[in-house]
Protein backbone atom coordinates (compact mmCIF):
# COMPACT_ATOMS: atom_id res chain seq x y z
CA UNK A 1 0.00 0.00 0.00
CA UNK A 2 2.79 2.40 0.95
CA UNK A 3 4.56 1.62 -2.31
CA UNK A 4 1.38 2.40 -4.20
CA UNK A 5 1.09 5.76 -2.43
CA UNK A 6 4.74 6.56 -3.10
CA UNK A 7 4.26 5.57 -6.74
CA UNK A 8 1.27 7.90 -6.96
CA UNK A 9 3.29 10.79 -5.59
CA UNK A 10 6.27 9.96 -7.81
CA UNK A 11 4.05 9.87 -10.87
CA UNK A 12 2.52 13.25 -9.97
CA UNK A 13 5.81 14.75 -8.88
CA UNK A 14 5.29 17.85 -11.02
CA UNK A 15 1.94 18.55 -9.39
CA UNK A 16 3.44 17.85 -6.01
CA UNK A 17 6.29 20.29 -6.69
CA UNK A 18 3.82 22.98 -7.81
CA UNK A 19 1.81 22.51 -4.61
CA UNK A 20 4.93 22.74 -2.43
CA UNK A 21 6.17 25.73 -4.41
CA UNK A 22 2.83 27.49 -4.09
CA UNK A 23 2.62 26.84 -0.37
CA UNK A 24 6.18 28.10 0.11
CA UNK A 25 5.50 31.18 -2.02
CA UNK A 26 2.42 32.05 0.02
CA UNK A 27 4.23 31.52 3.31
CA UNK A 28 7.26 33.58 2.25
CA UNK A 29 5.11 36.32 0.72
CA UNK A 30 2.99 36.54 3.83
CA UNK A 31 5.91 36.65 6.25
CA UNK A 32 7.91 39.15 4.22
CA UNK A 33 5.04 41.52 3.59
CA UNK A 34 4.01 41.37 7.25
CA UNK A 35 7.49 41.91 8.64
CA UNK A 36 8.21 44.54 6.03
CA UNK A 37 5.06 46.53 6.67
CA UNK A 38 5.10 49.10 9.43
CA UNK A 39 1.72 48.29 10.83
CA UNK A 40 1.63 44.57 10.28
CA UNK A 41 -1.92 44.89 9.09
CA UNK A 42 -1.29 45.08 5.39
CA UNK A 43 -1.51 41.36 4.85
CA UNK A 44 -5.00 40.84 3.59
CA UNK A 45 -5.99 37.36 4.60
CA UNK A 46 -9.33 37.72 2.90
CA UNK A 47 -7.52 38.52 -0.35
CA UNK A 48 -5.42 35.41 0.06
CA UNK A 49 -8.53 33.37 0.71
CA UNK A 50 -10.37 34.45 -2.44
CA UNK A 51 -7.46 34.43 -4.90
CA UNK A 52 -5.67 31.56 -3.22
CA UNK A 53 -8.84 29.53 -3.34
CA UNK A 54 -9.07 29.81 -7.14
CA UNK A 55 -5.47 28.59 -7.43
CA UNK A 56 -6.15 25.76 -4.96
CA UNK A 57 -9.27 24.74 -6.85
CA UNK A 58 -7.48 24.61 -10.20
CA UNK A 59 -4.44 22.76 -8.84
CA UNK A 60 -6.34 20.15 -6.86
CA UNK A 61 -8.84 19.60 -9.64
CA UNK A 62 -5.90 19.07 -11.98
CA UNK A 63 -4.30 16.66 -9.53
CA UNK A 64 -7.41 14.47 -9.28
CA UNK A 65 -7.98 14.63 -13.04
CA UNK A 66 -4.37 13.71 -13.85
CA UNK A 67 -4.41 10.79 -11.40
CA UNK A 68 -7.13 9.07 -13.40
CA UNK A 69 -6.58 10.35 -16.93
CA UNK A 70 -2.84 9.80 -17.22
CA UNK A 71 -2.93 6.37 -15.53
CA UNK A 72 -5.65 5.34 -17.95
CA UNK A 73 -3.73 6.60 -20.96
CA UNK A 74 -0.46 5.01 -19.85
CA UNK A 75 -2.27 1.73 -19.07
CA UNK A 76 -0.96 1.86 -15.51
CA UNK A 77 -4.26 0.47 -14.22
CA UNK A 78 -3.98 -2.51 -16.53
CA UNK A 79 -0.44 -3.12 -15.38
CA UNK A 80 -1.32 -2.81 -11.68
CA UNK A 81 -4.21 -5.22 -12.16
CA UNK A 82 -1.74 -7.92 -13.04
CA UNK A 83 -0.01 -7.46 -9.67
CA UNK A 84 -1.19 -8.56 -6.24
CA UNK A 85 -3.24 -5.47 -5.50
CA UNK A 86 -6.99 -5.03 -5.41
CA UNK A 87 -8.89 -2.22 -7.10
CA UNK A 88 -9.92 -0.97 -3.68
CA UNK A 89 -6.26 -0.61 -2.65
CA UNK A 90 -5.44 1.16 -5.89
CA UNK A 91 -8.27 3.63 -5.35
CA UNK A 92 -7.41 4.16 -1.70
CA UNK A 93 -3.75 4.83 -2.53
CA UNK A 94 -4.84 7.48 -5.02
CA UNK A 95 -7.10 9.18 -2.50
CA UNK A 96 -4.42 9.06 0.23
CA UNK A 97 -1.87 10.56 -2.19
CA UNK A 98 -4.39 13.30 -2.97
CA UNK A 99 -5.03 14.00 0.69
CA UNK A 100 -1.30 14.10 1.38
CA UNK A 101 -0.87 16.68 -1.37
CA UNK A 102 -3.68 18.82 0.04
CA UNK A 103 -2.17 18.50 3.53
CA UNK A 104 1.27 19.45 2.22
CA UNK A 105 -0.27 22.67 0.98
CA UNK A 106 -2.47 23.46 3.95
CA UNK A 107 -0.35 22.60 6.96
CA UNK A 108 2.51 25.08 6.31
CA UNK A 109 0.12 27.77 5.08
CA UNK A 110 -2.10 27.38 8.17
CA UNK A 111 0.89 27.51 10.50
CA UNK A 112 2.20 30.61 8.73
CA UNK A 113 -1.17 32.35 8.90
CA UNK A 114 -1.60 31.61 12.59
CA UNK A 115 1.94 32.78 13.24
CA UNK A 116 1.36 36.02 11.37
CA UNK A 117 -1.88 36.66 13.23
CA UNK A 118 -0.40 35.91 16.64
CA UNK A 119 2.85 37.76 16.10
CA UNK A 120 1.96 40.75 13.99
CA UNK A 121 -1.74 41.22 13.62
CA UNK A 122 -4.46 40.84 16.18
CA UNK A 123 -3.62 38.82 19.25
CA UNK A 124 -7.27 38.18 20.03
CA UNK A 125 -8.01 34.49 20.15
CA UNK A 126 -11.42 34.90 18.52
CA UNK A 127 -9.81 36.44 15.45
CA UNK A 128 -7.53 33.48 14.88
CA UNK A 129 -10.56 31.21 15.36
CA UNK A 130 -12.31 33.05 12.53
CA UNK A 131 -9.28 32.54 10.30
CA UNK A 132 -9.15 28.86 11.21
CA UNK A 133 -12.78 28.68 10.15
CA UNK A 134 -11.88 30.25 6.81
CA UNK A 135 -8.98 27.85 6.29
CA UNK A 136 -11.23 24.87 6.87
CA UNK A 137 -13.59 26.26 4.24
CA UNK A 138 -10.72 26.53 1.75
CA UNK A 139 -9.69 22.97 2.61
CA UNK A 140 -13.16 21.57 1.95
CA UNK A 141 -13.53 23.45 -1.32
CA UNK A 142 -10.12 22.11 -2.39
CA UNK A 143 -11.23 18.61 -1.44
CA UNK A 144 -14.35 19.03 -3.58
CA UNK A 145 -12.19 20.17 -6.50
CA UNK A 146 -9.99 17.12 -6.06
CA UNK A 147 -13.02 14.81 -5.89
CA UNK A 148 -14.45 16.36 -9.06
CA UNK A 149 -11.12 15.83 -10.77
CA UNK A 150 -11.30 12.12 -9.88
CA UNK A 151 -14.80 11.91 -11.38
CA UNK A 152 -14.17 13.95 -14.53
CA UNK A 153 -10.91 12.08 -15.20
CA UNK A 154 -12.98 9.12 -16.39
CA UNK A 155 -14.41 11.11 -19.29
CA UNK A 156 -13.36 10.19 -22.80
CA UNK A 157 -11.32 12.68 -24.79
CA UNK A 158 -9.01 15.34 -23.46
CA UNK A 159 -10.23 18.84 -24.15
CA UNK A 160 -13.91 18.60 -23.26
CA UNK A 161 -13.47 16.74 -19.96
CA UNK A 162 -10.54 18.97 -18.95
CA UNK A 163 -12.13 22.30 -19.74
CA UNK A 164 -15.69 21.19 -18.93
CA UNK A 165 -14.58 19.82 -15.60
CA UNK A 166 -12.59 22.94 -14.86
CA UNK A 167 -15.61 25.08 -15.68
CA UNK A 168 -17.78 22.97 -13.37
CA UNK A 169 -15.18 23.19 -10.63
CA UNK A 170 -14.98 26.96 -10.91
CA UNK A 171 -18.78 27.08 -10.99
CA UNK A 172 -18.77 25.15 -7.76
CA UNK A 173 -16.15 27.51 -6.37
CA UNK A 174 -18.71 30.28 -6.82
CA UNK A 175 -20.53 28.76 -3.84
CA UNK A 176 -18.00 30.70 -1.76
CA UNK A 177 -19.33 33.87 -3.35
CA UNK A 178 -22.94 32.85 -2.75
CA UNK A 179 -22.66 31.43 0.73
CA UNK A 180 -19.65 33.25 2.13
CA UNK A 181 -16.42 31.85 3.45
CA UNK A 182 -17.65 30.58 6.80
CA UNK A 183 -17.55 26.86 7.35
CA UNK A 184 -20.99 26.74 8.98
CA UNK A 185 -22.60 28.17 5.84
CA UNK A 186 -20.55 26.16 3.36
CA UNK A 187 -20.42 22.71 4.89
CA UNK A 188 -24.13 21.78 4.46
CA UNK A 189 -23.71 22.24 0.69
CA UNK A 190 -20.10 21.15 0.25
CA UNK A 191 -20.07 18.01 2.43
CA UNK A 192 -22.73 16.06 0.45
CA UNK A 193 -20.97 16.99 -2.80
CA UNK A 194 -17.57 15.80 -1.49
CA UNK A 195 -19.03 12.48 -0.30
CA UNK A 196 -20.94 12.05 -3.56
CA UNK A 197 -17.85 12.78 -5.68
CA UNK A 198 -15.84 10.12 -3.86
CA UNK A 199 -18.73 7.62 -4.12
CA UNK A 200 -18.99 8.21 -7.88
CA UNK A 201 -15.21 8.06 -8.33
CA UNK A 202 -15.03 4.80 -6.34
CA UNK A 203 -17.87 3.24 -8.27
CA UNK A 204 -16.38 4.23 -11.61
CA UNK A 205 -13.01 2.90 -10.54
CA UNK A 206 -14.46 -0.44 -9.46
CA UNK A 207 -16.59 -0.89 -12.58
CA UNK A 208 -14.19 0.41 -15.22
CA UNK A 209 -12.50 -1.90 -17.68
CA UNK A 210 -8.79 -1.00 -17.68
Amino acid sequence: MLRLIIREINDRILHFAIVIGLASAIVVMMLFSTIGSTSGQEVRLEGFTLVGLVICVVIFYGFGFAQIQSDRNKKVFAFLSTLAVTRGMMFLSKVIAGLVTIAVFFIPVSIAIQFVIRRYMSPMSIQSLAVTDMLWSVFFISLTAYGLGLVVGWGNGKIIPTLGGLFLTLLFYSIVVIKGIHLGDLLPVVAPVIISCFVIAYRKFMAASF
Binding site: P123, Q127, A130, V176, V177, I178, K179, G180, I181, H182
Partner: peptide, 30 residues
Protein backbone atom coordinates in the same frame (compact mmCIF):
# COMPACT_ATOMS: atom_id res chain seq x y z
CA UNK B 1 -27.74 39.95 -1.34
CA UNK B 2 -24.76 37.68 -1.89
CA UNK B 3 -22.66 36.74 1.07
CA UNK B 4 -19.65 38.05 -0.85
CA UNK B 5 -21.09 41.55 -0.66
CA UNK B 6 -20.55 41.47 3.07
CA UNK B 7 -17.16 39.91 2.50
CA UNK B 8 -16.00 42.64 0.17
CA UNK B 9 -17.17 45.22 2.66
CA UNK B 10 -14.98 43.64 5.33
CA UNK B 11 -18.07 42.59 7.21
CA UNK B 12 -17.35 38.91 7.13
CA UNK B 13 -16.56 37.99 10.65
CA UNK B 14 -13.07 39.26 11.24
CA UNK B 15 -14.47 42.46 12.63
CA UNK B 16 -16.94 42.05 15.40
CA UNK B 17 -20.06 43.70 16.61
CA UNK B 18 -18.22 43.59 19.89
CA UNK B 19 -16.19 46.69 20.05
CA UNK B 20 -12.48 47.10 20.25
CA UNK B 21 -11.73 50.07 22.41
CA UNK B 22 -8.25 51.13 21.67
CA UNK B 23 -5.90 49.56 19.24
CA UNK B 24 -2.32 50.23 18.55
CA UNK B 25 -0.77 48.36 15.72
CA UNK B 26 2.50 47.06 17.10
CA UNK B 27 2.07 47.59 20.83
CA UNK B 28 -0.50 48.77 23.30
CA UNK B 29 -3.67 47.55 24.87
CA UNK B 30 -6.78 46.15 23.29
Amino acid sequence: GLAIDKYLNNDFGLTYPWLIHSTNKRKGKI
